[in-house]
Amino acid sequence: MALSLWVDGLVVRSQRGRAILEIDRFTSEPGIRLGIRGPSGAGKSTFLHVLAGLLPRVEGSVRWGEHALTGRGAAGGDAARTGFRRAHIGMVFQDFLLFEELGAAANASIAASYAPAGERAAIRDRAEELLARLGIEPGQARTVRSFSGGERQRVAIARALAHDPAIILADEPTASLDRAAADRLIADLADLARATGKTLIAVSHDAALHRRMDRVIDIADGRLQRDEPVHA
Protein backbone atom coordinates (compact mmCIF):
# COMPACT_ATOMS: atom_id res chain seq x y z
CA MET A 1 0.00 0.00 0.00
CA ALA A 2 1.73 3.18 -1.14
CA LEU A 3 0.91 6.47 0.58
CA SER A 4 0.93 10.01 -0.71
CA LEU A 5 2.51 12.76 1.40
CA TRP A 6 0.87 16.08 2.34
CA VAL A 7 2.69 18.79 4.24
CA ASP A 8 0.91 22.04 5.06
CA GLY A 9 2.19 25.01 7.06
CA LEU A 10 4.94 23.00 8.75
CA VAL A 11 7.10 24.87 11.27
CA VAL A 12 9.68 23.17 13.48
CA ARG A 13 11.17 25.31 16.20
CA SER A 14 14.34 24.92 18.24
CA GLN A 15 14.06 24.75 22.00
CA ARG A 16 14.56 28.50 22.12
CA GLY A 17 11.74 29.06 19.68
CA ARG A 18 13.71 29.84 16.51
CA ALA A 19 12.14 28.34 13.40
CA ILE A 20 14.62 25.80 12.02
CA LEU A 21 12.36 24.40 9.33
CA GLU A 22 9.41 26.07 7.59
CA ILE A 23 7.61 24.37 4.71
CA ASP A 24 4.39 26.04 3.58
CA ARG A 25 3.19 23.34 1.26
CA PHE A 26 4.67 20.13 -0.09
CA THR A 27 3.09 17.06 -1.63
CA SER A 28 4.40 13.93 -3.26
CA GLU A 29 2.69 11.02 -4.93
CA PRO A 30 2.76 7.41 -3.70
CA GLY A 31 5.72 5.30 -4.83
CA ILE A 32 7.95 8.22 -5.71
CA ARG A 33 11.73 8.20 -5.20
CA LEU A 34 12.51 11.61 -3.75
CA GLY A 35 15.96 13.07 -3.15
CA ILE A 36 16.53 15.91 -0.67
CA ARG A 37 19.60 18.07 -1.10
CA GLY A 38 20.99 20.98 0.81
CA PRO A 39 23.87 22.26 2.90
CA SER A 40 24.61 20.76 6.31
CA GLY A 41 22.38 22.12 9.05
CA ALA A 42 19.80 23.33 6.57
CA GLY A 43 17.02 21.23 8.08
CA LYS A 44 17.06 18.18 5.78
CA SER A 45 17.37 15.63 8.56
CA THR A 46 14.81 17.50 10.62
CA PHE A 47 12.39 17.23 7.70
CA LEU A 48 13.04 13.49 7.56
CA HIS A 49 12.42 13.19 11.30
CA VAL A 50 9.14 15.08 10.90
CA LEU A 51 8.10 12.69 8.13
CA ALA A 52 8.93 9.78 10.45
CA GLY A 53 6.83 11.27 13.23
CA LEU A 54 9.86 11.39 15.51
CA LEU A 55 9.49 15.01 16.57
CA PRO A 56 6.91 15.47 19.26
CA ARG A 57 6.13 19.18 18.84
CA VAL A 58 5.71 20.67 15.37
CA GLU A 59 3.27 23.20 13.97
CA GLY A 60 1.24 22.61 10.85
CA SER A 61 0.02 19.44 9.30
CA VAL A 62 1.86 16.37 8.02
CA ARG A 63 -0.20 13.60 6.52
CA TRP A 64 0.69 10.25 4.93
CA GLY A 65 -2.38 9.17 2.95
CA GLU A 66 -5.24 9.31 5.41
CA HIS A 67 -2.96 9.20 8.42
CA ALA A 68 -2.19 12.58 9.98
CA LEU A 69 1.09 12.60 11.95
CA THR A 70 0.56 16.14 13.23
CA GLY A 71 -2.01 18.90 13.03
CA ARG A 72 -5.68 18.44 12.30
CA GLY A 73 -6.87 14.84 12.49
CA ALA A 74 -3.72 13.61 14.34
CA ALA A 75 -4.86 11.51 17.24
CA GLY A 76 -3.15 9.20 19.69
CA GLY A 77 0.05 11.26 20.01
CA ASP A 78 3.35 9.47 20.38
CA ALA A 79 1.87 5.97 20.60
CA ALA A 80 -0.03 6.49 17.32
CA ARG A 81 3.07 7.89 15.55
CA THR A 82 5.11 4.93 16.86
CA GLY A 83 2.47 2.52 15.60
CA PHE A 84 2.48 4.24 12.20
CA ARG A 85 6.27 3.98 12.01
CA ARG A 86 6.20 0.32 12.92
CA ALA A 87 3.60 -0.43 10.23
CA HIS A 88 4.58 1.87 7.38
CA ILE A 89 8.11 3.30 7.68
CA GLY A 90 11.54 1.77 7.23
CA MET A 91 14.57 3.85 8.15
CA VAL A 92 18.20 3.87 6.98
CA PHE A 93 20.86 5.95 8.73
CA GLN A 94 24.25 7.36 7.74
CA ASP A 95 26.19 5.32 10.31
CA PHE A 96 24.04 2.19 9.94
CA LEU A 97 23.07 1.97 13.64
CA LEU A 98 23.19 -1.80 13.74
CA PHE A 99 23.44 -3.85 16.92
CA GLU A 100 27.11 -4.78 16.77
CA GLU A 101 26.59 -7.77 19.06
CA LEU A 102 24.04 -9.41 16.76
CA GLY A 103 24.39 -11.14 13.41
CA ALA A 104 23.02 -10.01 10.04
CA ALA A 105 19.75 -11.91 10.28
CA ALA A 106 19.07 -10.83 13.87
CA ASN A 107 19.69 -7.20 12.93
CA ALA A 108 17.56 -7.34 9.80
CA SER A 109 14.66 -8.97 11.64
CA ILE A 110 14.86 -6.77 14.75
CA ALA A 111 11.25 -5.69 14.21
CA ALA A 112 10.18 -9.23 15.06
CA SER A 113 11.13 -8.63 18.70
CA TYR A 114 8.43 -6.01 19.16
CA ALA A 115 5.93 -6.99 16.44
CA PRO A 116 2.74 -8.89 17.29
CA ALA A 117 3.40 -12.62 17.55
CA GLY A 118 1.51 -13.31 14.32
CA GLU A 119 3.86 -11.14 12.23
CA ARG A 120 7.18 -12.39 13.60
CA ALA A 121 7.69 -15.31 11.22
CA ALA A 122 6.88 -13.19 8.16
CA ILE A 123 9.35 -10.51 9.26
CA ARG A 124 12.11 -13.07 9.75
CA ASP A 125 11.43 -14.71 6.39
CA ARG A 126 11.40 -11.40 4.56
CA ALA A 127 14.60 -10.28 6.31
CA GLU A 128 16.43 -13.40 5.18
CA GLU A 129 15.07 -13.10 1.67
CA LEU A 130 16.20 -9.46 1.47
CA LEU A 131 19.66 -10.25 2.84
CA ALA A 132 20.09 -13.00 0.29
CA ARG A 133 18.94 -10.66 -2.47
CA LEU A 134 21.45 -8.02 -1.26
CA GLY A 135 24.25 -10.58 -1.36
CA ILE A 136 24.60 -11.25 2.36
CA GLU A 137 24.47 -14.82 3.61
CA PRO A 138 21.65 -14.69 6.19
CA GLY A 139 22.65 -17.90 8.00
CA GLN A 140 26.15 -16.79 8.98
CA ALA A 141 26.89 -16.77 12.68
CA ARG A 142 29.38 -13.88 12.83
CA THR A 143 28.17 -10.58 14.20
CA VAL A 144 27.98 -7.47 12.04
CA ARG A 145 30.98 -6.05 13.93
CA SER A 146 33.25 -7.66 11.32
CA PHE A 147 31.21 -6.43 8.33
CA SER A 148 32.43 -3.78 5.87
CA GLY A 149 30.52 -0.49 5.63
CA GLY A 150 28.80 -1.56 2.45
CA GLU A 151 27.70 -4.85 4.01
CA ARG A 152 26.44 -3.09 7.09
CA GLN A 153 24.37 -0.64 5.10
CA ARG A 154 22.87 -3.48 3.10
CA VAL A 155 21.91 -5.17 6.38
CA ALA A 156 20.34 -1.85 7.36
CA ILE A 157 18.35 -1.79 4.13
CA ALA A 158 17.13 -5.33 4.76
CA ARG A 159 16.10 -4.17 8.26
CA ALA A 160 14.26 -1.15 6.80
CA LEU A 161 12.27 -3.36 4.46
CA ALA A 162 11.78 -6.50 6.55
CA HIS A 163 8.40 -5.41 7.92
CA ASP A 164 7.26 -4.47 4.42
CA PRO A 165 6.69 -0.72 4.97
CA ALA A 166 5.19 1.59 2.34
CA ILE A 167 7.81 4.28 2.95
CA ILE A 168 11.62 4.18 3.21
CA LEU A 169 13.31 7.17 4.81
CA ALA A 170 17.07 7.27 4.29
CA ASP A 171 19.34 9.80 6.00
CA GLU A 172 22.69 10.16 4.12
CA PRO A 173 22.77 6.41 3.37
CA THR A 174 26.00 6.61 1.33
CA ALA A 175 27.97 9.16 3.36
CA SER A 176 29.93 6.54 5.28
CA LEU A 177 30.72 4.38 2.25
CA ASP A 178 33.46 4.43 -0.38
CA ARG A 179 32.46 5.22 -3.96
CA ALA A 180 32.08 1.65 -5.15
CA ALA A 181 30.07 0.60 -2.12
CA ALA A 182 27.98 3.77 -2.37
CA ASP A 183 27.17 3.13 -6.02
CA ARG A 184 26.13 -0.44 -5.31
CA LEU A 185 23.99 0.70 -2.41
CA ILE A 186 22.30 3.41 -4.46
CA ALA A 187 21.47 0.86 -7.13
CA ASP A 188 20.13 -1.63 -4.54
CA LEU A 189 18.04 0.98 -2.79
CA ALA A 190 16.58 2.51 -5.93
CA ASP A 191 15.87 -0.86 -7.52
CA LEU A 192 14.27 -2.32 -4.43
CA ALA A 193 12.04 0.75 -4.00
CA ARG A 194 11.01 0.62 -7.61
CA ALA A 195 10.45 -3.14 -7.65
CA THR A 196 8.27 -3.09 -4.53
CA GLY A 197 6.50 0.18 -5.32
CA LYS A 198 7.59 1.84 -2.08
CA THR A 199 8.02 5.54 -1.54
CA LEU A 200 11.73 6.34 -1.03
CA ILE A 201 12.78 9.63 0.50
CA ALA A 202 16.56 10.04 0.77
CA VAL A 203 18.42 12.95 2.29
CA SER A 204 21.89 13.06 0.73
CA HIS A 205 24.85 15.06 -0.44
CA ASP A 206 25.59 12.38 -3.02
CA ALA A 207 24.86 13.49 -6.61
CA ALA A 208 25.03 9.87 -7.74
CA LEU A 209 22.12 9.09 -5.47
CA HIS A 210 20.04 12.01 -6.70
CA ARG A 211 20.59 10.90 -10.31
CA ARG A 212 18.64 7.73 -9.52
CA MET A 213 15.70 9.61 -7.94
CA ASP A 214 12.44 10.55 -9.63
CA ARG A 215 12.47 14.00 -8.08
CA VAL A 216 14.96 16.08 -6.05
CA ILE A 217 14.20 18.99 -3.75
CA ASP A 218 16.58 21.43 -2.10
CA ILE A 219 16.34 22.64 1.46
CA ALA A 220 18.47 25.58 2.58
CA ASP A 221 18.12 27.77 5.66
CA GLY A 222 15.17 25.70 6.74
CA ARG A 223 13.14 26.40 3.60
CA LEU A 224 12.24 24.51 0.48
CA GLN A 225 14.29 26.08 -2.35
CA ARG A 226 13.22 24.58 -5.61
CA ASP A 227 11.66 21.50 -6.88
CA GLU A 228 13.21 19.77 -9.84
CA PRO A 229 11.86 16.69 -11.56
CA VAL A 230 14.93 14.68 -12.60
CA HIS A 231 13.39 12.59 -15.30
CA ALA A 232 10.97 15.26 -16.58
Binding site: A52, L54, D78, A79, T82, G83, F84, R85, R86, A87, I89, M91, I110, A111, S113, Y114, R159, H163
Partner: peptide, 8 residues
Protein backbone atom coordinates in the same frame (compact mmCIF):
# COMPACT_ATOMS: atom_id res chain seq x y z
CA UNK B 1 14.50 1.08 18.44
CA UNK B 2 12.00 3.87 19.01
CA UNK B 3 12.81 5.30 15.55
CA UNK B 4 12.21 1.90 13.99
CA UNK B 5 8.77 1.82 15.53
CA UNK B 6 9.24 -0.05 18.81
CA UNK B 7 6.82 1.09 21.50
CA UNK B 8 8.07 2.72 24.68
Amino acid sequence: LRALGAER
